[in-house]
Every structure is written in structure tokens, then in C-alpha cells.
Nucleic acid binder design. Sequence first.
DNA 1: CGGGATATTGAGGGATGTCAAGGTAGGTGG
DNA 2: CCACCTACCTTGACATCCCTCAATATCCCG
Lengths: 256, 256
Amino acid sequence: MAAAVPTLTGRTLALRAAQAGARGEVIARDCSSCGFRRSCLPAGLPAPEQARLESLVYMRRRVKRGEALFQQDDAFRGLYALRAGSFKTVLVDAGGREQVTGFFIGGELLGTGGLASGRYPSRAVALEDSEVCGLPHSLLEELSQELPALQRYLCAVLAREIVRNHGTMMLLGSMSAGERLAAFLLDLSARYARLGFSPSDFHLRMTREEIGSYLGQTLETVSRQLARFDAEGLIEVDQKHVRIRDMDGLARVRGA
Amino acid sequence: MAAAVPTLTGRTLALRAAQAGARGEVIARDCSSCGFRRSCLPAGLPAPEQARLESLVYMRRRVKRGEALFQQDDAFRGLYALRAGSFKTVLVDAGGREQVTGFFIGGELLGTGGLASGRYPSRAVALEDSEVCGLPHSLLEELSQELPALQRYLCAVLAREIVRNHGTMMLLGSMSAGERLAAFLLDLSARYARLGFSPSDFHLRMTREEIGSYLGQTLETVSRQLARFDAEGLIEVDQKHVRIRDMDGLARVRGA
DNA sequence: CGGGATATTGAGGGATGTCAAGGTAGGTGG
DNA sequence: CCACCTACCTTGACATCCCTCAATATCCCG
């Protein structure tokens, strides 16, 4: 089915770009210059598969702060690799209650839940002006048949998300407010470190309310716990800027 | 790599059966007589793929109540389809705290998290004497290359688990004790119904403590909420036996 | 029939949610 | 460039849900 790719670079691409343009600006594609090349989806693949996968990325798209990349229950269009910026995913249940189910930063994969039912199970909203790389699902499927390694890798990515969610369930189910926040900060720290950013000095892209929603608590509780950590010398907080002063201490708070 | 299968029916099978025998009794394989044929993993596949997948199931294994099918951090051996009985999965975090992360009944798939890292991320314990069908991962991988539909289907199964976990996160993050229990009972009810059992009359295979752990609350709270639902005429509880008398009422409790 | 596991029920307290009142930052328009 | 305005954050007082601890009851398995 390799024929589909040449087609894509011609009329089809232009068409899709135009369609996408209605939702957000489409910009040039170029994986080689991407800062997240090492941590993005292709990173786990052998070189030829990498190159092949990169040829699949059919467009970049800018998403402005507050805009949605996809809506809950939208038909599944494909996965998105996060090239710049950050997102939250929000789930609305039958009763109308909203909850933040995850935060995403550079190189991470958005939309995986959509592989299940053909619809995105949650809404993805940009926390700041961001850029994503689209991996349309029809091509992803074709390429998977061509490259078994990709298929296996995709499964592994999904399974990793399952494992991560289990961690979050643990956090929500059996940790106190302080422990949850410590775990949250340490998780963010580790993810920033993976991208080559400082693990101890970063900006929170999300509001206290969003953190609270994710952690299953109120924004006031988040604020108070942050103040407490600051008072105890574990971190320094100045609005959205966080500096971790005592990583081990924070880990101890989480662990207890 | 089809050659691997004939081999498996000979010496290899006997060898593996013997190895497995050390952990639990191995019994004859026969998908055609399985009561969960319609809801198990192959159900979503076209007939030829189904037959092929069934040839892959290399053994059944009995697991007695309280025994573990796999331990947390065990090397990934493969997936298990649950043929009879029920399981819980338990996660132990760095601090030694345990939490039940899921319950599994007939036809459901155990061990999916292991596809991520090559290790099972949680322990699976039988809640009653049970039987599972093993799908060894090396063969699963070979067959996936042969049958792209299986690979896609496997991805969908994983993605479905992600979606389900999101639901659990929602439950843990933003619902009260009563709402959580109502959601739990309705989820169980729907799953029993899918298997052709009564949606309104079933036995809880797990203890109050296990329910509490899963729902992020104490066993006393679970007991009190069950008593409350009973007093309100929503359900009848007699120890582990539950009868749902007012499904809509229960849904209303969950929804609020 | 006995004993350990499991479940029920009560009393009390603490963590966290709720409500409320400012305070701060950053963007927008004059 | 300043003033305003909105969104976000902080802090306090109070309420409440649920956890903790404890005593008793019941079930299930050997």
C-alpha cells in the first residue's frame, strides 16, 4: 500500500491541509529539526522505520492557548505528537462533571484513547500556544502492516499509558492531598528532565484548578499544599514558577 | 514463522506445560466449548483469524483462590484470557502501599500492562478458583505479523482499557463515596450482563476491603454505603449477594 | 463445632471541601 | 503608558464527609 504515500504528497495533502486549516494553522513538516526528535514516537524504532514513519507525519498544526485539538466524541482522525507547548485532556461524564485526566508536554503522544472506539474519549485543550504533528490513522494503519516493529511499538506506547494511568489511580485512591501534590511535582520534574529541561526549575502551565481537578482535590487545597511545601523549604513557589529545593524531601513526602 | 506452531504442539508444548505445572495445573485446550467464546478476545475477528488465534492458545491453567497468576515485576510471559472465575490486580507502590487496580471476570484479558515494559506492572490474584487461557507473547507477536487484523484488534483492546481506566480515574477523582459505589455496582452489572448473566442479581467475589481499596475508601465506608442503598430500597444486600432493585435509582445516585 | 476471616455498626476526630474576602498578575484599550 | 479588568491565586473560617478506632456479629472452611 506504499502508493498511498506519494498520493498524499500531492493533491491529498493539499486537501487535508486545507481542511485542517479551518481549525488551526498548518505549517511545514520537518522532523529532522525537531527538538524532541529523541523522545518522540519514532525514537524507539530502528533508523529505516524512523525515516518511514517521519514521511507519514503529514502536517504540523498550531493550536492556540485554550483551543481544542480534538473534542470528546469527535471521530478519531489519528494521533498527535506534541512538538511544542502543552495540553490537558478533559473528560466529561454523563452527569456533566469535568475532570482533567492528563497533562502532556513535548514529545508525548495525544489521542491514543481514540484507537479503541474510533472516537476520541476526551477533549484535548492547549495550555499555551502549541504545535502538534499529526499522524493520520489510515496511514498509520497501512504503515503498521508494512512495518511490524511500528505496530509492536504502538502497542507498547499504549501499554505504557495503561501503566501510567494505574499510577494515577493509585495516587487518587490511596494518597493524601500532600502526597498527591508531591507525586505530581516529581512526575512533572522527571518528564521535564527527560526532555533535557531542568528537573528542579519549571513553569506550571496549568492553573491550580486544573491541577486540583487532575489530583481529585480543590484549587484551595492545591494552593495550601504548595504554600506548605514552600514553608517547609521543599520548594519555592512564585505563582506558576516552581523551584524544587529538596527533591529527596519531596520524594519522602510522596512515599510516606 | 508458521513453523513455530507445529513445534509447539510437540515437545515444546509438553515442556511449557511442565513448567507451568509447577505453578498451577494445566488442562486441555478447546475454545469451541468455551462459554465465553462470544465475548473473549477472538470475538471481534473474522472467522479465519479466529481459528488461527485459537490455535495459539497453548494451554489452560487453573489458579486457586488466593493464588497469583503473575507477580508484579515478573517477566512478561503473555496475556491471559479469563475462562472461568475472577481476578483482582493489585499494585504495590514504592512506599509499600497496596491498591486494587481492577477486577476481571469471564472473557476479559489479563496482563495487558505487561506489553509496555516486558514486566507485569501488577499482581493478579484469583478471587475464587479460576481458569485462564494463556496467550504466550512470542507467538502472539509472530501471529500479529501474519494477521494484521489481530494487531489492530489488540491495539483496540489496549485502548479500551485506557478508556476504562479514565473512567476509574474520574470516579476516584470527583465522586463521593456513595457515587463511587453506585458506579461500581452498575459497572459490574453491565459486565455480567455482557456475559449473559443476570445484570441485577450477582455475587460479589471480592471482599469489602478489596472494593474499598479499588474505590479509594475504607471497608467500613463500603459497608455503610451498601447498608444505605439497601435501606433506600435501591438494592438488597445479603453478605456477598447483591440484588439490584432499582437500576435507574442507582444510576441517579451515580450521576448526581 | 471452633476459629479466623469478614462484615456491621457506633462514636469521635481530622483532613479536606465549601464559602467568602481580598490580593496579584497580565492583557487590553484608551 | 497607565488604568482597568478579568482570570487566577491566596488565606481564613466553618462545615462535613469519611477515616480511625473499637466492639460485636456473622460467615465460612477445615
